[in-house]
Write a protein that binds this DNA or RNA. Sequence first.
RNA 1: UACCCCGUAGUGUAACGGUAGCACAACAGAUUUUGGUUCUGUUUGUCUAGGUUCGAAUCCUAGCGGGGUAACCA
Length: 569
Amino acid sequence: MSTDDTSAASTPAPATPRNFIHDIIDEHNQSGRFEGRVHTRFPPEPNGYLHIGHAKSICLNFGLAKYYNGKCNLRFDDTNPAKEDQEYVDSIMDDVRWLGFEWDALYYASDFFEQIYQYAEQLIEKGLAYIESSPVEKIREMRGTLTQPGQHSPDRERPTAESLDLFRRMRAGEFPDGKYVLRAKIDMAHPNMNMRDPLLYRIRHAEHHRTGDTWCIYPLYDFTHGYCDSLERITHSICTLEFENHRPLYDWFIDVLDLYHPQQIEFARLNLTYTVMSKRKLLELVEAGIVRGWDDPRMPTIAGIHRRGYTPAGMRAFCEDIGVTRFNGLTNLAVLENAIRSDLNKVAPRYMAVLNPLKVVLTNYPEGQVDELDAVNNPEDASQGTRKVPFSKVLYIEQDDFMEDPPKKFFRLAPGREVRLRWGYFITCQEVVKDADGKIVELRCTYDPETRGGNAPDGRKVKSTIHWVSADHAKSAEVRLYDKLFTIENVADIPEDEDWKTYLNPESEVINTIAKLEPALGDHPAGFTCQFERLGYFCVDKDSTPAQLVFNRTVTLKDEWTKLQKKAD
RNA sequence: UACCCCGUAGUGUAACGGUAGCACAACAGAUUUUGGUUCUGUUUGUCUAGGUUCGAAUCCUAGCGGGGUAACCA
């Protein structure tokens, strides 16, 4: 890939598009608030696979660090042992690297558990936290509602010494899950619900994927996250909009202990048409067996789009295209597809493949003769060279490339009409052969030996060039045709009382088992990406074997003809 | 009905008090051995009402509309 190509010094690459976060950082740099440092971090919870929304966050955080010559950490916010797993840690690291980024420091929130525990004790000692003994339901009840203030717990005035003792015994494992919880003492009437004596620690006798059984109490995310940022000396804690109401709480935790104070900045998460970005829903698709797994090519996960054949450079370009704001919008899937096509167009070698074969017999071509034709690998990149493609008497062309009774704007093959076979010869359709049901099963055509390579010495033109493969030389393959995951543009519009899964697109994966490929396509490793001329971009799936080739359709080519047909309806 | 945030072409995003631009989409044309690519052109926009100002998308006020927030989740 040549996305970071700086060799063309005379035409510098367009500068990274700026956004409101750059303005904030510039201000900080001018005022000297962080001594000119820029240190971001990407802080996922390892409880699922990363998706395209995370890609936006990754590009933002790592991109900012790069732009300002700063640093960016990877930190796993692993405060809930029940949901987290090493499998997810591994996949997240793979995904970040696949996108083309490398972290400066790697941390886990669990690395800071002891320090955070000490902070909790300090809060208790300052009279700013207390041990709560009420059950969950009672705590919830006393919290009040959005429009009504909460009530003080009877435990709120528990003496400091008693809270401290209880907290230490919680850590020592003296109590069962749910017996006690540590709460901050802030303001039960605060209009911001997060400030109504939030929970800090809970008892969980659970095996943690990193700390094992060292702990039986775990800090909640809200109590942990800001401290981790502070301890890592993060300057700009970038997160999504739903944490905006948490910012005053994080500020309180830090200021009350007089600790180093990063600046939190919120931005709008990515929403894409015809897909979901909810970890919960994606998990459901995986667990219900509706998809092939987290890396199913229909999934908006990074693992999924990777398997689908999307490229890191295309994804990074997409993340730049969509911008960063505080507006909660819905981005068209077309923007993503455009970014991917535009990258693949430059780098993907071209091949010929026929998805729905129609047999063509060249009646005037010598029996048994094979011609090795030269084909250009990529018209956009001469350095990709040429290859040989075998040509013979019996060929396959695409069923869609022939019409017995063509409408006005159909330029392809029809009875009596001449077209060009890509890199081959001009052929003319002489006869249509049908079976008993009237289905077209074969075309009998003549070829013009003078047009080898695709040009007529007499200068005559054809309206169309179509792709083909030689029947005797073709490889069979399974080709998985992918399309949008949902039938509804905005998944958020699905009513609450309906099952969102009824809006899944039944044709999001269509399996074609009759495809015929040119022989050069027979020997490539999983992940190999190319263009099937006139059809789209495809890649070799990880299920592919030499005996059973499997290709995924990454994205179609733009298609004026299909568009015309749809308009005609 | 509490608090917080957000309203710029169809969609997404620029314009930091001084000519409303870009991308995608759509439409029209040119080029083309991919109905691809490339190139050219066209259509469509500052939520509303006041105010401040020589001048407002930008600042202020109100209204309208959208989103978020009441896990021992993150």
